[in-house]
């Protein structure tokens, strides 16, 4: 069976790929995709941690595991709401600057 450290390594790798993308890319849609990637890697790690300390369904650890998975569910809900508003902001930005390059965002100053 699998140890927890492999899940840690996988989730950290996915998270850092997302960080690198958000830092280096200039297309605002791809930056937003990278943020989604980071959210998902954190969800994966939360689910992996929820499976750590329990023996069977009716023992004490199962309750915290259930709470952890409900927490992941609420993270997904908030992410869905966030995506709708963020994409509306990207559309607004495209309408005002005719570009989705994040370097054009400095025109918001004027």
């Amino acid at each position: 069976m699998l140890e927890i450290k492999w899940y840690i390594v996988l989730a950290v790798t996915l998270f850092c790929i997302g960080v690198i993308g958000a830092l280096t890319r200039r297309n605002s849609i791809i930056v937003f995709l990278c943020i989604e990637l980071m959210l998902n890697s954190v969800n994966l790690l939360l689910v992996a941690f929820s499976k750590m300390h329990m023996t069977d369904m009716h023992a004490g650890g199962a309750l915290s595991a259930l709470n952890a998975q409900i927490f992941v569910f609420f993270i997904m809900i908030v992410a869905a709401a966030e995506v709708s508003v963020g994409l509306a902001i990207i559309v607004l930005m495209y309408r005002n600057t005719k570009s989705i390059d994040i370097n054009f965002l400095n025109r918001l100053k004027n």
């Binding site: 140890e3 927890i4 992996a48 023996t55 259930l66 998975q69």
Partner: peptide
């Protein structure tokens, strides 16, 4: 970090969640 995950507990089922 060497804790072995238990997969066979049925916590993730829709019934309990």
């Amino acid at each position: 970090s060497h804790t072995i995950l238990r997969f066979d507990t049925g916590v993730g089922l829709i019934k309990y969640l």
